[in-house]
């Protein structure tokens, strides 16, 4: 379970960043007092246009960034006060994350298993299970740098799941992937849901959201615009489809601000 309460994050700007952003302010507020909950056995979509604060929020959830204000509970562990303990419960998969090209999948998965404190015997057992599931046996000892994008994505999934996390964070996991590779991720998210894990998922692709998600939070300019179940979202829908509805909500807020 993930419980986010009054979460904010501001970044201090250096001289060059101020120049690039064309601002004289010393800091920028990326996430502004957001609160929502993600429940076990459900997939929670986090949506928002570019620069809305999705990645910053997910980075705070995965404890890479420390919030400026607010609290995050990951399976009842305070992720702000005890990030190390919280990380044991989290699996984090992003579309942009790279892999160590000079290692083999076997070496990489074992390394992350060790970092997560999984006992050696369990690492081998879980590796076999994941390799079977993802059909990875053929390339487990090849250097990652020589693998195809699809194979690499399978390695990323394996790395994310090696410690069997209860909370899985997906940050645009299918961006830039072909249909077949993206399907592996979709299947993984379904499996996580069926296993009763808490899944939070950010994407630009409304079709994926419609297919997978049970709950939805839309954020824009760091603020929550909408937070409810997908059922409720569909029920209140005014536009002809989900994408148009998402655009309508974001535009309404822009008009309100203007």
């Amino acid at each position: 379970m993930i419980q986010i309460s009054h979460l904010s994050k501001s970044f201090t700007l250096n001289r060059q960043q101020k120049k690039e952003l064309g601002t004289t302010q010393n800091s920028v507020l990326a996430v502004d007092d957001i609160s929502f909950e993600c429940l076990p056995g459900r997939v929670h979509a986090l949506l928002g246009p570019n620069g809305a604060g999705k990645t910053t929020t997910l980075r705070m959830l995965s404890t890479i960034f420390k919030p400026t204000k607010g609290t995050i509970l990951i399976d009842n562990v305070d992720a702000v006060k005890d990030p190390q303990e919280a990380r044991k419960h989290i699996g984090f998969l992003t579309g942009s994350a790279g892999l160590y090209a000079r290692l083999t999948p076997n070496e990489l998965i074992s390394y992350f298993g060790e970092l997560y404190g999984v006992p050696k015997n369990d690492i081998e057992m879980r590796k076999k299970k994941l390799y079977d599931l993802l059909d990875m046996h053929d390339f487990q000892n090849k250097r990652i740098g020589k693998l195809s994008t699809g194979m690499k994505q399978k390695v990323s999934i394996c790395r994310t799941m090696i410690h069997d996390p209860q909370v899985v964070i997906f940050d645009e996991p299918t961006s830039g992937l072909d249909v077949i590779t993206a399907e592996n991720i979709i299947q993984l998210i379904r499996d996580c849901k069926n296993q009763g894990k808490t899944v939070i998922f950010s994407s630009h692709i409304m079709g994926e959201v419609d297919l997978l998600c049970d709950d939805i939070t839309i954020i824009h300019k760091g603020k929550v615009l909408y937070n409810d179940t997908m059922e409720a979202f569909r029920a209140q829908q005014q536009a002809p489809n989900l994408t148009a509805e998402f655009i309508r909500i974001v535009n309404d807020q822009k008009t309100e601000l203007a």
């Binding site: 980075r59 995965s62 404890t63 890479i64 190390q84 303990e85 990380r87 044991k88 989290i90 984090f92 992003t94 942009s96 994350a97 790279g98 892999l99 160590y100 090209a101 992350f112 970092l115 997560y116 404190g117 790395r159």
Partner: peptide, 14 residues
Amino acid sequence: ERSTIETLLTTPVP
């Protein structure tokens, strides 16, 4: 540059 640091920092290692 290779964006591998992010995944490393999500592990429970100080």
